[in-house]
Amino acid sequence: STAIDVLGYLVEVVSGKPFDVFLRERIFEPLGMTDTDFWAPPEKAHRLATLYGPSESGGLKVLQTTENFLRKPSAPSGGGGLVSSMADYYRFAQTLLNRGAWNGVRLLGRRTVEWMMTNHLPEGMRLPDDPACGFGYGGSVIVDAARHFHMGSPGNWGWGGAANTWFFLDPVEDLLAVMMLQYMPGFSIPFHHTFANLVYQALVD
């Protein structure tokens, strides 16, 4: 929602820096996320993924080319717009799974991350599209694993994007998973449930 855009602006106010500069200095550079920014330079244009959707004939059609991401936006958004790679996103997710640290760099305190991954909704309230989940700071939290749409542990935390992108962290299993489909409309196909089930079924220890 626009709440995340407001948070991005608050970061600018509190830090005294543009939002993109703050992210680069405080998160991307310390974690070695060299492919993450609000735009991609020309030399990386060939690596940008095309966004697809259903065509009228039953196949796929291109919904958005990569041109929009080859120029710096006038106002970096707190709610979306970053360009990244699977490797960079893995570093970010692993940092959260590690309770705020990655490769000797600590961005957040352990208790801060645990608080982020705790359900903060009032008793009895759930996400409208998933009665098994509550909400932490920035992501959904599985509260009732038995009622969830796919396999998972209580405390499983994550979030998805409009193009069927999704990641989740499972502190119980010390597990993270990232999926980047680049297909819209979001969550119109149940593949993310299948993906999660396949991940958990692969755990045999």
Rank of each mutant, 00 (worst) to 15 (best):
T2P: 13
T2Q: 15
T2S: 14
A3L: 11
D5Y: 13
V6S: 06
L10S: 15
V11H: 10
V13W: 10
V13P: 07
V14W: 15
V14N: 12
G16P: 06
K17M: 07
D20G: 01
V21G: 08
F22G: 06
L23V: 09
L23N: 00
R24W: 03
E25T: 01
R26V: 06
F28I: 00
E29T: 09
E29G: 10
P30A: 00
L31Q: 00
G32V: 02
G32Y: 02
M33A: 04
M33L: 04
T34Y: 15
T34L: 10
T34W: 14
T36F: 01
T36I: 09
D37P: 02
A40T: 04
P41H: 06
E43A: 10
E43I: 06
H46Y: 14
L48W: 05
L51G: 04
Y52N: 07
G53V: 10
G53K: 04
P54Y: 14
S55P: 05
S55C: 09
S55F: 11
S55R: 14
S57Y: 10
G58H: 09
G58V: 03
G59N: 00
L60C: 11
L60Y: 15
K61R: 12
V62I: 12
L63R: 14
T65Q: 00
E67R: 07
N68T: 02
A75M: 12
A75T: 15
S77I: 02
G78T: 05
G78S: 02
L82P: 01
V83H: 07
S84Q: 06
S85Y: 06
S85N: 04
M86H: 14
M86A: 12
Y90R: 14
Y90D: 00
A93L: 03
T95C: 00
R99W: 10
G100R: 05
W102Q: 10
N103W: 03
V105Q: 07
R106T: 02
L108P: 06
R111G: 05
R111C: 08
E114R: 08
E114Y: 04
E114W: 05
M117A: 02
T118W: 12
N119C: 06
H120C: 04
P122C: 03
P122W: 02
G124W: 07
M125T: 09
M125E: 06
M125V: 15
D129F: 12
D130Q: 09
P131G: 14
C133R: 11
C133E: 11
F135M: 14
Y137D: 09
V143G: 01
V143F: 02
A146G: 01
S153K: 14
N156E: 15
W157D: 07
W159S: 07
A163D: 10
A163V: 07
A163C: 05
N164W: 01
T165Y: 08
F167D: 07
L169K: 12
D170W: 13
D174R: 11
L176S: 03
A177M: 05
A177W: 06
V178Y: 03
V178F: 02
M179L: 14
L181Y: 10
L181E: 08
Y183L: 15
Y183D: 08
Y183A: 15
Y183P: 14
F187A: 08
F191N: 03
H192D: 13
H193P: 09
H193C: 12
T194Q: 12
A196S: 10
N197T: 00
L198H: 12
Y200A: 04
Y200D: 04
A202L: 13
V204Q: 05
